[in-house]
């Protein structure tokens, strides 16, 4: 097991963002966190990776030096202006105290399907290329656990499919992946386990097929519609 969180609560004043969350992350899983906007997905993700502290509850990590062993792709693209994709990758590798050669960086860019744009300024890459570069940054230090926050948001179907293939390839290489998404087809295609979160609570968890059976839903989209509220949460 990589992470185990028990009784996680996050509260800002009277506003409850996360309410008594229990979650564990096992090796080699691809976990999808789904739920309406503002349901608490990103807050939960940020707590699991240690960016936010819970108001109460405990989070256990498999390694005290876990921060250097996880890879994270955030929704915003954190690339340095003026630097090429390759230069950004080398810089981020140095933050992990990892000295890599240009050949190794190019190999990582090739894995992510962005080697053709290695010398293009990161800010000038297309949306799909930037997402791929963000994933390259997340895996450059060979982490065992990957957190991807909406990795395919706003991408066209081809780019989306490429990133799906990349995620499956990374799982086959032994990596564990946790991702958030609003695309139920994507979740169905990739996830080995789904966490449905709404109003700060996990309202359902399990394998996609198992959940659909349990709630008598023909698809994950139908399941999502059944379980979540109509209005968006602005917690």
């Amino acid at each position: 097991m990589y992470i185990e969180a028990k009784g996680l609560v996050k509260q800002y004043g009277k506003r409850m963002i996360l309410n008594n969350i229990d979650v564990s992350i096992q090796a080699h899983e691809i976990i999808a966190i789904i739920g309406p906007n503002g349901a608490g997905k990103s807050t939960m993700l940020e707590m699991l990776i240690g960016l936010q502290k819970p108001s109460s509850g405990t989070i256990w990590h498999w390694d005290t030096a876990y921060k250097g062993k996880i890879g994270v792709q955030l929704q915003a693209v954190p690339f340095f202006p003026g630097l090429s994709a390759m230069e950004n990758l080398l810089l981020f590798a140095s933050f992990y105290k990892k000295s890599i050669s240009k050949e190794e960086a190019m190999k990582c860019l090739r894995i992510c399907g962005i080697h053709d744009a290695a010398h293009t300024e990161a800010a000038k890459l297309s949306g799909g290329q930037q997402k791929r570069l963000a994933i390259a940054v997340a895996i450059i230090h060979e982490p065992t656990l990957l957190f991807l926050d909406e990795p395919t948001a706003a991408l066209d179907p081809r780019n989306r499919q490429d990133i799906h293939n990349l995620m499956l390839e990374l799982q086959q290489q032994g990596k564990t992946i946790v991702f958030t998404s609003h695309d139920m087809d994507e979740v169905h295609q990739l996830a080995t386990r789904v966490l449905v979160i709404d109003q700060g609570k996990i309202i359902a968890a399990g394998e996609p097929a198992e959940l659909c059976n349990k709630y008598d839903a023909a698809s994950l989209t139908q399941l999502y519609m059944k379980l979540t509220r109509e209005d968006e949460c602005y917690a």
Binding site: I49, L51, L74, P78, F80, Y96, V137
Partner: peptide, 17 residues
Amino acid sequence: HWQRSRGVYKLLMLTPM
């Protein structure tokens, strides 16, 4: 400001640096 708003510092918090 740019680095902060783009999440550079957030990512840095997750590195050993």
